[in-house]
Each structure stands twice: as C-alpha cells, then as structure tokens.
Design a binder for these strands. Structure first.
Lengths: 214, 214
DNA sequence: TTGATTATTCATACGACGTAAGTATAGGGT
DNA sequence: ACCCTATACTTACGTCGTATGAATAATCAA
C-alpha cells in the first residue's frame, strides 16, 4: 500500500488516476479521512508526490468536485417538452450528487460555474425560450431548480454519516401525544420512498413555473 | 487574548458564551479557522478548557449549529393562509442560514431533527391540514420547501469564500458568441437581486403545491 | 555509448491540529 | 479551618498540510 519505489522512478500516475483514488477513498471512508498521506497510500505514492498534480489540497478538492461532475450523463431527447428537459436535468444532477454524498460539503463550498455547466445552461435556456419563457426568467428557473436538487441531496440522510440511522431513530421515536400529525404522516409512508417525493416536488415546481410563459 | 489565569481560577465561562465566541470566530475567519486553540483564545481560555463544555470538536459543531437555529425567530400570524405560513417559514429559515453562511457545511453534515424543528413541523402540518392537504403530502411539502431553502443558501455566493467575486468574474466574462442566451439573461438583471428570485421561486412552488389540496 | 539535463519521487522537518493524561489551584460546603 | 471538587492549565502524542532539498530514473545530445 505504501510506496515501494526508488526516487525518480515513475509511478505511472496521472491526475485522473489520483482523482479516482480520491473518490474511492472518500466514498469508502468519508471526506474527513481524505488526507494527502492517506490518498498517497491509496494510489501507491508518498504524500508529496501528489503535489506534482495539484498545487495544494484545496486544488485537489476543486479537481475532485469537477471530476465527479464530469462523470454526469445528461441525456437530451430531441423535441422534448421543457418539462421533460428540466426533469432530465434535475434527475441527472440528483443522481450525480447522490452517487457521492460525502462530497456535498466540498461541492457547496466552491463555485459551480464551469464550461460544462455553462453549456448545459445555454442549452436549457434555448429549450425554455422555445417554450415561451423570457430568457431572464428561464435562467432564474434553472437556478431555482438546481438549488432544490442541491438542497435535496445535501439534507439527504445519506449525506450525513450514520444519518439514516439517526433520522430513523429520532422520527420513529416521536411521541404521538405531543406531535400527533407528524406521527400520522410517518405512519403513512410513501411506497417508493425518497425518489417519489423528489419527483412529486419536481412536478409541482413545473406547474408553478408554467405561469411564467408569456 | 491568550489565557492569563492561575489554574483553578474560574474564567466565568458558559457553554453559551463559548458558542457565541465560536459564531463570532467563524463569521469573521471562516469555518476552516475554527480550531480548539483559536476558539480558546477567542473566549480567553486554553484549548483544553473547552472540553469541560464539549466532549470533542464534533460535539462543539453540533452545539454550534443548534445554537444558530435557536436564534431563529419564526413569527406566526394567526389565521394566515397556508401560503403565508410557508412563506414565513421559508423566509425565516433562509434568513437564519444566510446570517452565518460559513456554517453551511456544518449544517448539512448533521441531522436536522431537533425538538424545535419537530414543533415547527407539527405546527406547519396543522396549518396545511386546515387548508385541505393530506397529512403525508403536507410533510413532503414542508420537506421539499426546506430542501429548496437549504440549497438556495448553500449555493449562494456568500457561502463560498470569495464566492461573490468568483461568480461575478466568471459570469461577466461569458463569451456572447458561444453563450448568447446566458449573456442576454445576465444583461437583464432583476432589480432586487437574489431576494426577488427567491420569492419568485417560492410563489411558483406554492402554485404547484396547491394542486394537492383534496 | 556516454554524459549532462530534466522530470519525478521520496525523505526530512516545521508548525498547527485534536485530544489523552496528568497536575495545580480557587472557591464552596462541611 | 478544612477538604473536596469543579475548573483551568501543562505537557505530550500522533496526524495534518506542505516547504525544502536530496536522490535517482528517464530522456536527450554528442
């Protein structure tokens, strides 16, 4: 696991390989356990070697977030409705973030404006304009939808270490005397769980947005 | 600034005072600069003294998030519409989070179910039920709204260090040839800025949610 | 082939971190 | 007046990010 290599001998390492190792490490052990030494061990190199690929840990995290987003697949159907486009965008973003929930604290602490995100936004604006939305409104709309998805994943129990267990425990332990309505709502769970609730909220937002078509 | 005190001599410190110091430090220097030693200096005590009030740094962060939420003021008008209640809830939550944006990474990494949040939820469910929402739907609705607010603040430029400057730079630098619609949207800014966009999205969600009234 | 140059990795070291363990003392209860 | 305990401090250990510089493999010029 640690580096067994004489000085100067190439490790055959690439920036991408390091980032893949980082994703592996974070998914397995959590963001707090991502240190230069441990990441070095993960990819078979000493800590300082990583500084050939990243100026510092901050830059590594930048690359990590960018790397995860680069793996996103946004399938764009031709001639789809604006709802279909937004739905595809939101679901894709959700899946991307949910694939590595431990990264959310890193995701939200750096600006999200990348060439890729600009291309997606431009495409979305075109779709929404075709449907009759004013351009400015269309951008607000995409932003709002993005914020919802980010919040949805960020507050998701899987983002918190042991979050699922904690939420389960605290909610099932709710006193029906003190909080009768919460108890009732918990007692009638949705069949499909979180996914269904996400979609329901999505559709509600679409209905609300539709009023902005001029 | 550092501790000048003989052992045993009380520092007149309380849990609350420590948390207030922590909020001050985080607001001033950012979450990354919150260390036990620096926090000790902030409140006039050595680092280890803080362990009389918190089991470890994790517990300190728990307390910090809870403390910030305890400062939230949720004004509840009597006989208001369900929209008015949700609006008040969302704006209050937004203001609370936006008051200490540096804390967002800490906020999203711990479960949000507290006695206080349960009370708010129960009250909200009552209001929504009066308006005709099924209980389960009402809870989904409050959750979705909460997620939107969290995402809104988490992605807000003020959450990122130097985020405002970074976003400004990257957006005004957009090539109108490559991204004409984005350029156009930026060229026609909203008068009231982020606040207005937040409210607009809120109202859209309300319109969409209204369809769930049985 | 050989020698110099460059690219790459590793070793060492420093200050800051969280915190375990132990020590000293002030202030309150008897 | 005494002791007890709550409170605060000191020291120390392992880990962190990373500056600096040494060592060597890889590459290229002759």
């Amino acid at each position: 696991m640690t580096a067994n290599r004489t000085r100067g001998q190439k490790a055959g390492l690439t920036r991408e390989a390091v980032l893949e190792g980082a994703v592996r490490l974070v998914d397995r052990d959590g963001l707090a356990k991502l240190s230069m030494r441990r990441l070095g061990a993960e990819v078979g190199v000493e800590a300082m070697t990583l500084y050939n690929y990243f100026a510092n840990k901050e830059a590594l995290l930048d690359g990590l977030v960018e790397h995860v987003f680069s793996l996103a697949t946004l399938s764009l159907e031709e001639d789809a409705s604006w709802q279909a486009w937004l739905r595809g965008y939101a679901r894709s973003l959700r899946a991307t973030l949910l694939a590595h929930p431990s990264l959310m604290p890193a995701v939200i602490t750096r600006p999200a404006v990348t060439p890729q995100s600009l291309r997606v936004m431009e495409y979305g604006l075109r779709e929404l304009r075709k449907a009759g939305f004013p351009t400015r409104t269309a951008m607000d709309l995409v932003y709002s939808l993005t914020e919802f998805v980010v919040g949805h994943v960020a507050t998701s129990p899987t983002t918190v270490p042991d979050g699922a267990a904690a939420k389960e425990e605290r909610l099932t332990g709710v006193d029906p005397q003190e909080f009768p309505l919460i108890a009732e709502a918990i007692g009638t769970p949705r069949p499909q769980g979180e996914d269904a609730r996400f979609d329901v909220a999505l559709e509600a937002m679409f209905r609300g947005f539709a009023d902005f078509i001029r």
